[in-house]
């Protein structure tokens, strides 16, 4: 077996066109041999297309993809990869136990069936027909198929869509465990708190292009500054005149002041309105960073 050094995924100028529509535009991504990478982006940004291209399910229009140092879709790399697709449903008439056993037979060194059933909270559902499971339970079976092969690389395309909070936590735990064991996880999500909680690295895609790619803390810091939330008599116009204010938003009794520099803005605020109350200063969330990245892109 080849050593695990180097890149697991390496794409150069990866481009995929559907007619006139460019789903991926010159995507360059390198993913090393461990860690959790989250791919974020609005509907139609190209996340699923990227995953499909890496798996060899679709042909790139141009550009290169290397998976474990090989072209995509090779059997040796497929044996080291587990996949949960966004829209793959399984035959209704087989049970989770039968589905997972079948997929286990494809891999050289699969995990034990009982362990995976347990990890994915499927033990009590193991002998029910797949077609009779709820949407979230079906997703759990699909997740089990992604990990049963004990793969070095796992793709999860929107794994937690439609899952309840407990199940989502369960999935997060398993994903973290995979990463701790030195495996590489690539996941897409529309839940920013999920990326925030899980990912070491975040890639933001927009209209087929990568518009940000950095470790999670750096992405969060892109929003910069801080948010000051308070109740004040000052008008929005007056607040805008305070030092270093980027934007102001009224939410009910509160105003939310986004600032470049919390110290100078706070000083100015308290100087102008000594009665400002219920003051809270918070770090911008990943969501705000994300909004800003997408927003800047659209202005550019």
């Amino acid at each position: 077996m080849p050593a695990l050094e180097g890149h697991v995924i390496h794409t150069t100028n990866l481009t995929k066109k559907y007619g006139k529509n460019t789903a991926l535009n010159n995507v360059n991504i390198e993913v090393g041999n461990s860690g959790i990478t989250a791919i974020l982006g609005e509907n139609g940004a190209g996340k699923t297309t990227f995953i499909h291209a890496c798996l060899g399910l679709i042909k790139a229009t141009h550009g290169q993809i290397s998976m474990f140092g090989l072209p995509p879709g090779k059997l040796t790399s497929r044996r080291r990869t587990g996949v949960m697709l966004q829209d793959a449903d399984l035959p209704d008439l087989l049970t989770p136990r039968e589905h997972i056993t079948l997929f286990a037979s494809y891999y050289p060194a699969p995990l034990s069936l009982d362990d995976v059933l347990d990890m994915c909270k499927l033990t009590t559902l193991a002998d029910k027909k797949y077609g009779k499971l709820s949407g979230g339970q079906k997703r759990r079976v699909q997740f089990a198929l992604a990990i049963i092969g004990n793969p070095d690389l796992v793709f999860l395309d929107e794994p937690t869509t439609g899952l309840d909070t407990d199940t989502r936590r369960m999935l997060w735990d398993v994903v973290r465990k995979l990463a701790e064991d030195g495996r590489t996880v690539i996941l897409t999500t529309h839940y920013l708190e999920e990326a925030d909680a899980l990912a070491d690295r975040i890639i933001v895609m927009n209209a087929g292009e990568i518009i940000a790619d950095a470790p999670t803390p750096e992405i969060r810091a892109l929003a910069g500054g801080a948010i000051i939330k308070c109740v004040t008599n000052l008008s929005v116009k007056a607040i805008h005149k305070l030092p270093d204010v980027k934007s102001v938003r009224k939410t009910g009794r509160f105003v939310e002041i986004s600032t470049q520099n919390q110290a100078s803005t706070l000083q100015g605020l308290l100087a102008a309105d000594i009665n400002a109350s219920e003051l809270v200063v918070k770090k911008p969330s990943l969501e705000e960073a994300f909004d800003q990245i997408i927003h800047n892109q659209e202005q550019a």
Partner: peptide, 10 residues
């Protein structure tokens, strides 16, 4: 989509 998943798997 089952065949797609099988093509992606080994």
């Amino acid at each position: 989509g089952w065949l797609k998943l099988k093509r992606a798997s080994p």
